[in-house]
Amino acid sequence: MKAPRKVSLTVNGEALSGEASPRMLFADFLRDVLGKTGTHVGCEHGVCGACTVIVDDVAVRSCLMFAVQAEGADVKTVEGLADGEELHPLQKLFSEHRALQCGYCTPGMLMTAIDLVASNNALSEQDIKVGMSAALCRCTGYDGIVKAVTAYAEQVHGKPIKRESDNG
């Protein structure tokens, strides 16, 4: 009954499959079975956001999902962002704004930000701060992360976002 079963899914546009026992978390399946180690595992109970990936167009914690629940899913991980050597626009902005230091949280930050920006075309800087609090960073103090995501939201939605620092 608890024997491994086959899970077939699409990851970054590629059809993949692997074996997972029912208790296996989706985060572990991505890393240990499919070899997609770009997705990082932090707290393993949904608090830190390091394992966030896009499943069927929305950001989810891959540590709060079972691998067998990903059957048939369309998944995007950090490995799917760059086009060859050409970084994704959000990755470039993370680099420009020094939005990472050790990098452990970065894959989850990127996937969290992509869904946050896609979900709302009228984000304020405060919305971005609240939204990015879904993922924990213990290096940067968030300043660069908020700047990078704000710049990304401006690019995606084509309109400026007022910064708190604009008040003087």
Binding site: A59, T112, D115, A134
Partner: peptide
């Protein structure tokens, strides 16, 4: 409730 990625599930 929590954060957007939690509310997505």
């Amino acid at each position: 409730i929590a954060h957007l990625p939690i509310r997505n599930r």
